[in-house]
């Protein structure tokens, strides 16, 4: 029975099982009179330091089909940082301020991870996007936006 004594203690320090990437993948936000303040996490689960470059795009839906386009002038999306260097097995939080002149709106943050630079050879990048839906009401925001 001795070995099982550690079970409860192990659970207290269980390592997080996040994959390398970003969180949340999809989020619905409610915009009032002021800008919406939210945040996202950029996760480096690898054993090497990585650099992530963040890029914001607009999401549009027309006749049920979605497209990712450059930000339009009626969407004001600000990130606290657009480049983060993340040490191994750490997470960085990016603050986001979002305000759309016309609701509902949606935007994507594309995070591109790069490893160490090289003078020769190929540079391998992993690009992951998450999407944010902004509405006057949070409930069914994404579904209603996609019906446009």
């Amino acid at each position: 029975m001795k070995y099982l004594a550690a079970i409860l203690l192990l659970a207290a320090f269980a390592p997080c099982g996040h994959p390398q990437g970003i969180s949340p993948l999809i989020s619905e936000l409610k915009q009032g009179k002021k800008e919406v303040k939210t945040e996202m996490q950029v996760i480096n689960a690898s054993i090497h330091p990585l650099t992530a470059v963040l890029e914001v795009h607009a999401i549009h839906f027309k006749n049920g089909k979605g497209s990712v386009d450059p930000l339009t002038s009626d969407m004001h999306i600000q990130l606290s940082e657009t480049t983060v260097k993340i040490p191994p097995q750490q997470t960085r939080t990016i603050l986001i301020n979002a305000k759309c002149d016309q609701l509902p709106c949606a935007f994507a943050v594309q995070s591109t991870f790069s490893g160490a630079r090289t003078n020769v050879g190929a540079s391998i990048k992993i690009s992951i996007g998450n999407s944010w839906y902004v509405c006057s009401k949070e409930k069914d925001c994404r579904a209603n936006f996609q019906k446009q």
Binding site: T51, E55, T82, Q110, V120
Partner: peptide, 30 residues
């Protein structure tokens, strides 16, 4: 660092000027 469009942006809490350096040894581009 620049994104896929070659663009960069940095946000600051104060309106001040910054000296610019281009550290080519830090480029992510090979």
């Amino acid at each position: 660092c620049t994104d896929s469009e070659g663009a960069f942006e940095m946000r600051e809490s104060k309106a001040r000027s910054f000296p610019v350096a281009v550290p080519v040894e830090q480029f992510l581009a090979p």
